[in-house]
């Protein structure tokens, strides 16, 4: 229908874009990860010492595992919060569905930094929460461990990424024909039985999609740990940031980035397969 020249002409710009701004930088990063730094200069000498460092030095491994633990917790809390919200939205919000939907979306329009700082004012030593706790005489002194801890990071990231979990679950629930719910009731299943046997299994693909968002986005996050994490809440991306910045060790930073990339891409490939396997459209 279209000539070859036309096809080439329309597909060329995106191809150039992807090559120039995605493939080339990744390739460059990949190359960097095999080089080293000596005397403040990058030495273009191929070796595996960066990857060796990653395996032998505890700090990188420990930070990566902590990041994954934090990301996993964020995912679980976001699911625990997001699923009931999405369920309520889809099945019980009725005429106010759109309003509630907007309420879920609106936080996404607020700058990430504003939301992170908001938690700082809530969790700080003189923050809203500590003031309230003392006012209610639950504690005598401000609780310092609220801010600058993995707890603060998990809390903030959960707040920020819950909408990303709600939306795909909501979409999955909206796609369940309501006659299936009626059919289940009709065949003698109580509302609870219907939920566990029909609604929940059919919403699993949405849950997987939402969980993937929450996990991948929190794993790569560096602002929340930087603002609220303190020394014990450092995540892997903070190390990458400092390696590319103050520490000026681009090769090691590139090696870590590449490891995270491989991790995330394999996770995405896995969840995509799971979503396909569990969807029945």
């Amino acid at each position: 229908m279209f000539s070859r020249a036309y096809k080439a002409a329309v597909s060329l710009p995106p191809l150039i874009w992807v090559t120039l701004f995605l493939l080339v930088p990744y390739l460059l990063m990949f190359c960097y990860s095999f080089w080293t730094v000596a005397g403040g200069n990058v030495v273009h000498q191929w070796n595996l010492s960066n990857y060796g460092d990653l395996i032998t030095k505890d700090v990188y491994r420990a930070t990566l595992f902590r990041s994954m633990r934090i990301a996993a917790r964020v995912t679980i809390f976001a699911l625990l919060l997001g699923y009931p919200l999405a369920y309520f939205l889809s099945f019980y919000a009725g005429a106010r569905k759109n309003l509630f939907y907007q309420l879920v979306i609106i936080p996404l329009w607020v700058s990430y930094l504003v939301r992170a700082y908001a938690w700082k004012t809530i969790l700080g030593t003189d923050g809203v929460l500590n003031t309230l706790l003392q006012f209610l005489h639950i504690t005598q002194h401000p609780v310092d461990s609220l801010l600058y801890s993995p707890f603060a990071v998990v809390l903030t990231l959960t707040h920020i990424y819950t909408p990303f979990v709600v939306l795909p679950i909501y979409a999955a629930l909206e796609h369940i024909p309501r006659t299936l719910v009626e059919a289940s009731n009709d065949l003698g299943a109580s509302p609870a039985q219907t939920f566990w046997r029909v609604i929940f299994p059919l919403s699993v693909p949405g849950m997987v999609a939402g969980a993937t968002f929450a996990f991948v986005l929190s794993l790569g996050d560096f602002l929340a740990p930087q603002l609220l994490g303190g020394p014990s809440g450092i995540m892997i991306s903070n190390i990458v940031v400092s390696l590319f910045g103050a520490a000026f060790n681009w090769p090691l930073g590139a090696a870590i980035s590449f490891c995270i990339l491989v991790l995330v891409v394999s996770l995405l490939a896995l969840t995509e397969r799971l979503e396909k396997k569990w969807s029945y459209s």
């Binding site: 024909p177 006659t179 299936l180 009626e182 059919a183 289940s184 009731n185 009709d186 065949l187 003698g188 299943a189 109580s190 029909v198 299994p201 059919l202 569990w278 029945y280 459209s281």
Partner: peptide, 20 residues
């Protein structure tokens, strides 16, 4: 009685078979 306690069953217009 709620629908799940009625000894009545329904064949739906678009069958409503559980896809999973």
């Amino acid at each position: 009685l709620p629908p799940y306690k009625r000894r009545v069953n329904t064949v739906f217009q678009h069958y409503a078979l559980f896809p999973h």
